[in-house]
Design a protein around this nucleic acid. Structure first.
Length: 289
DNA sequence: ACCCAGGGTGACG
DNA sequence: CGTCACCATGGG
């Protein structure tokens, strides 16, 4: 992963990055804290504001030093993964080739575990626009203030802030009946539930552990495992992906167990990455309805 | 008024 | 094990 850093301007420019389309990556439903602002993308993660912009086909990001880039953003944007090789892995699957063609340049982000846990608890039976708004309100109400170019932004709240919050105040951010789940999940993390420690477990064990948190079922657990904990085999099965597997791949089984076996056989150990292309492709084009 | 949104829980069989 | 009503909220 080659890049050059401009210390004076606190800018990093990626060199010859292929397979990185910020639009696809930031607005495909895996992250909720990015916005389009006249010609650039602005997001908040790791307690900082980051801006991305395209400069003659190259990606620049600011404000960031080389040290911060290496410590935080390189992994956040999954820049060490060879997406060219990934696409070759999947080239025998015509549906997936279509999906990867449509969503070329999409990357699976490595986000912060606690933020991802809460964000996808909120995602249950909800839509992206509303999820984004709820998370923005939660951050403004319970997150730490960040100053960026004289403007005010808010980091995603720390566990203690949400654990100590009044459930009614969480609900007032639009969380509705999920307010209690958010508070309990935050309390669990404060009480020693080790999200980082899940990375060292086998997939099934980590998933079971996550599902002991109220508001986290199988789909939400897979989102956390895939988007924050590095589990490439985690395959979030939402309504769109069920449509894809049944109607585009012709699966006609009944049980969840058979469905999981089909997915493992079809997509292998990196099923989660395949899922991301298929999800965005299907959802944007309303396929499989 | 009704349906849907990147579902999950609890109750019941 | 499977099924099912219910869950806040806002937009279509």
């Amino acid at each position: 992963m080659a890049y050059s850093a401009d210390f004076f301007n606190r800018t990093v420019q990626l060199k010859n990055v292929e397979h990185f389309d910020p639009e696809m990556t930031l607005f495909c439903g895996q992250a909720f804290r990015w916005e389009r602002v006249n010609g650039l993308y602005r997001g908040i993660a790791h307690g900082r504001v980051l801006e991305l912009f395209m400069d003659g086909g190259e990606v620049r990001m600011a404000p960031v030093t080389a040290a911060e880039f290496n410590a935080v953003w390189k992994r956040y944007f999954d820049l060490d993964r060879d997406y060219g090789a990934l696409k070759r892995d999947f080239e025998g699957d015509p549906v997936l080739v279509q999906g990867m063609e449509y969503a070329g340049g999409m990357r699976v982000l490595n986000q912060e575990p606690f933020e991802t846990l809460v964000s996808f608890i909120i995602s249950a039976n909800n839509n992206v626009k509303r999820i984004t708004g709820i998370i923005r309100k939660l951050s403004a109400r319970f997150g730490e203030r960040i100053n960026h170019n004289g403007c005010e932004y808010f980091a995603f709240p720390k566990p203690a802030a949400l654990a100590n919050a009044d459930a009614a105040d969480l609900a007032a951010c639009g969380a509705g009946y999920r307010a209690a789940y958010i508070k309990e999940a935050a309390a669990a993390v404060c009480g020693g539930f080790d999200l980082e420690g899940l990375k060292d477990m086998p997939y099934e064990e980590a998933k079971k552990s996550l599902m002991t948190i109220k508001g986290v079922g199988g789909k939400v657990a897979d989102c956390i495992l895939l988007y924050a904990l590095g589990f490439e085999e985690a395959f979030p099965l939402d309504v769109w992906m069920k449509r894809v597997v049944y109607n585009l791949y012709g699966f006609c089984g009944k049980s969840e167990k058979d469905l999981r076996a089909f997915i493992r056989e079809k997509f292998g150990p990196k099923a989660g990455l395949a899922q991301q292309y298929l999800f965005h492709y299907a959802r944007m084009n309303r396929l499989g309805i």
